[in-house]
Amino acid sequence: MRSVFGKYAANCVAFLLTATIDIVHADSGGRLLATGAATQIEGSAGGGIVPMAVLSGYDTRDEAGGTAFVSRVDTKDYRLDSIGAAWSWRNRVELSAARQELRLDTLAGALGVPDNTIRQNVFGAKVRLYGDVVYTATPQISAGAQYKKNLDFFIPSAAGAKDDSGVDMYLAATKLFLAGFADRNVLLNGVVRWTKSNQESLVGFGGDKRNSREAVFEGSAGLFINRHWLIGTEYRQMPDNLSFARAQDWKDVFVAWFPDKQWSVVAAWVDLGDIATLRNQQGWYVSIQGSF
């Protein structure tokens, strides 16, 4: 019985893998390798924690394309899993959806509450306003919005968060400098985000200290060792709305691998600072993206 089930499961996994690879190999767009970036934790094209002005996938101004991703952040006391997909049209508009699931066993234990998971849905839209990340002298500029809905608001509410849903708006500028440093291609990305989210809104929106949007800065810098390997760092400023616990800025150092236009893998060491009174949340981040 067991072996029959095992065989069924193996066949099933093999079928799903083949189907995924078929879909993914069906058609890759006409943009250059790595110009679709990876997918950041909220589902927008970007690095690991910071979005970029580039749109997901490899579609040019005459094509459409998309991506799907999974990622995990694992720190001392928290684990965040994200899964999602993005679709972009004519290198102009990107639509994305992601589901996040945060495990917080240490905090739940300390608070003596049974909930050990906070789930959140994120729906994103991004529009390329101007420029091309590779070919124009000025950076590629995009405007984006992320609507987020926290599905487990008990703990955020207890921490003093005011709303379980909200919208972040951002302006991103991204530029690849060909042979920019030591004859290697250099990627620079800057984002201004208008937000009142607490810890990327996993702890809701607004708080007792502050309940209005503010502009925060996010940035990424990377160096392409060759066409396939990018090393870099990210920084994401966090609003500090709750008197219950201070929020600290997030940062990471990452390695991204673009073996071909179908796949990308990002691995990072992240430092999220103190989160909800639990100190020094450092750990690993991994994401895998498929493009179609």
């Binding site: 767009g29 006409g30 005459d62 030591a182 004859d183 066409r227």
Partner: peptide, 24 residues
């Protein structure tokens, strides 16, 4: 279009790789 231009860039990169021209 963009796709044509990038295709040529990719063909050039392939040619440079086969000539063992350095990344820099």
């Amino acid at each position: 279009n963009d796709m044509h231009f990038n295709a040529l860039v990719e063909d050039l990169i392939a040619a440079m790789n086969s000539q063992q021209i350095s990344v820099s």
